[in-house]
Structures are given as structure tokens and as C-alpha cells.
Amino acid sequence: MTSEPHPIPGGPAEPRVAAEEVNFPRPSKGSATQHLVVTMLADYWRDYTGWLPSRLIVSLAAALGLSSSAASTALSRLAGRAVLEQSSAGRASRYRFTPEARARLEIGVRQISGFGSGERPWDGMWTVVAFSVPERSREVRELLRSRLKWLGFAPLYGAVWVSAWDTADDLEDSCRHLGVENYVIFRTAAEGLRGRPLLEAWDLDEVRRQYTHFINAYRQKTDALAGERLPGEEAFRLRTEVMDAWRAFPWEDPGLPPELLPHDFPLFEARRILVALYNPLLEDARSYAEEAAERLAPEAAGHSRPFVLEG
């Protein structure tokens, strides 16, 4: 469940840096199958350290509309990304999240839990970074830009990026990890700055548009399900589907403070719909996952811990 580009600051530095070694599939790019498998496993077994046999994962993936071959390929590629580690028990493969992936997922859970809630306090200060990476280190420059976006930054100019949140420590860790030495990070209030407003680093109209499909697709489902219960398999599918769609948003939306946004910014309506749909599906979806575990992986039965969104 990690797409989370701008985690709540203050986590321990070593797990955060180690977690950067994990190449999670990026939302909106790459394999949608891998995204779905990560979302599903992260929802129910993100902190489970035991092994999950591939037959269980493939069976649950079928409820999401994934073929057994597609699910197996996704598992193999996620292992290659260091998201999952793989082992064999006889002729059967089994998987679990790597320790580094679990560290990233823990950050992701915190970020998704608060994203769009409007409850994160803002101190009115901005974080600004200016950097220079030589042309011969183009790959490092792209990795740094990706990390900046992950942290909620946007480019005001080519090598000057800004964020409304205090992520200076996280960013400094990333620069050290990537071997970037030529940079400066500072915090500033917008008052007193001259020239282009920092908020113009983002195209808010483009950010706004990303929520249109989500709101249109899930508002009617939320209204239709009011007070109703779905069969377990359908609840499992819909719950995974809606979270997989939601977790892509923080890649394009930095989660700016509500004070900086129009009052009708659609993030808040999308969040309301998400909570109203996602949480009520929990019990039926978990029952479906547990029944599958009891049949296919008794050792994993009883260990699912579905994610609960705060209202």
C-alpha cells in the first residue's frame, strides 16, 4: 500500500534509508497487476513475517480478475524488485514482504491514513532545496527527482524544488544515500519572498482532474451500499480496487495544507467517499481472505490485519 510520496516526518532514519532500496511499482506506470498484488498483500499481511504460499496469493488474485499466470508473473517480478522475498517449500513457492518493504509500507500506512483528512497542522513554512547533479550522473539526478516527488516536492524551477512540509531531514538522508553533495536545503516563510509564488510549482487544475474519475466511479457505489452487505468475494475485490485507485493520488497530489487550497478542492470529497466505502467492507472482505487462508495456507490463517482508515 505504498505509494506514499510524502510521509509524516520523524521516522527513524535507518529504516527510512534502507527502505529506499526497495523498488515498489509506481502507481500509474508499470504493471497494474503488480500494483494490485501489492495493495492486496499490504492490506491484509503487511506486517506478517511468515510465508504466504503462492497458491493462496494466486487464489485471492483471481477475485481481483487476475489470471494465475499474471499473478505468478507479478510475484516473480516483485521479488526481483526486493518488494517480496521468495522461498520454496518442496515444489511450491512462497512469499513475504522483505524487511525493507515492510519499513516502506509502515510509512505508507501512516501517510494514507492521513492523506486528504486535512488534520495535519501546517506551520506556514516551506522547505526549499536547490541542487546540482552533473550531466554524467543523469541516473542519479532522475532518482533524486523521483525521491523529491515522493517527499511532496515540486519543481519551481529546474533544480529548485519546494514543499509545504518540513521534510528537510528526510531529504538530506536521501541526498547522502544517493551520493548527491552539491545541494542546499532551507526553510522559509512565503512572506518577504519576491517573484513567483511558491504555490505555482504545482498545477492545481491538473491535480484536481485526477479525482474526477474516482469520485464519479465510487460515489454511486458508496450510495448504493449504504446499509447493505456484499458477498465476501465482491467485498474483497471492491475494497482492494478502491484502495489501489486511491494510493496512486499522492504521486501527483503533494497533500498541500488546506489553507492553500480552494474550499471546493475535490481531494476532500474523494476522501469522504473512500472512507465511507472502504471501512464498511472490512469484515466481509477479511472473512473471505481468512476462509481462503484456512483452505490453502492454514499456517497463515488468523494473521490477517486489514487496514482501517481514520474518518
Rank of each mutant, 00 (worst) to 15 (best):
T2D: 05
S3N: 04
P9A: 07
G11D: 12
P12R: 13
A13T: 11
A13K: 12
A13E: 11
V17P: 01
A18C: 00
E21C: 00
E21W: 10
P27S: 05
P27F: 01
S28H: 14
K29E: 10
G30K: 09
S31K: 13
T33H: 09
T33L: 01
H35R: 15
V37W: 14
A42G: 15
Y44N: 14
W45Q: 08
W45N: 02
W45T: 08
G50M: 03
P53H: 13
L56M: 11
V58G: 10
V58M: 10
A62Y: 00
S67E: 09
S69K: 13
A71N: 13
S72C: 01
S72I: 03
S72K: 14
L78C: 09
A79I: 00
R81W: 01
V83C: 03
E85F: 03
S87W: 08
S88N: 11
A89K: 08
R91G: 12
S93I: 10
E100Y: 04
A101M: 10
A103W: 07
E106H: 15
G108V: 15
V109C: 04
S113K: 09
S113T: 08
F115A: 10
P121K: 15
D123R: 11
D123E: 11
G124E: 13
T127H: 10
V133Q: 01
P134D: 11
R136A: 15
R138N: 08
V140C: 07
R147D: 02
K149L: 05
G152K: 01
G152N: 03
P155T: 01
L156D: 12
V160I: 14
W161I: 07
W161K: 02
V162E: 00
V162N: 01
S163N: 13
W165T: 05
D166F: 04
T167E: 12
L171Q: 07
S174L: 13
C175I: 04
G179T: 13
E181W: 02
E181M: 02
A190G: 09
G192D: 06
L193Y: 06
P197K: 05
P197A: 10
E200Y: 04
D203L: 06
D205W: 04
V207W: 12
R208H: 07
R208I: 05
R209L: 12
Q210H: 11
Y211T: 09
F214V: 04
I215M: 03
A226V: 14
E228I: 00
E228H: 14
L230N: 09
L230G: 02
L230A: 04
G232E: 06
E234A: 15
E234N: 01
F236A: 05
E241V: 11
E241N: 12
R247T: 11
A248M: 01
A248R: 15
P250Y: 01
P250V: 02
D253R: 08
P254V: 03
L256I: 00
L256R: 03
P262Q: 06
P262A: 11
P266R: 11
L267P: 06
L267G: 08
I273R: 03
I273C: 07
L274M: 07
A276Q: 13
Y278L: 05
L281V: 03
D284I: 06
D284A: 15
A289K: 12
E294N: 07
L296D: 04
G302R: 07
S304V: 04
R305Q: 03
V308I: 15
E310Y: 05
G311M: 12
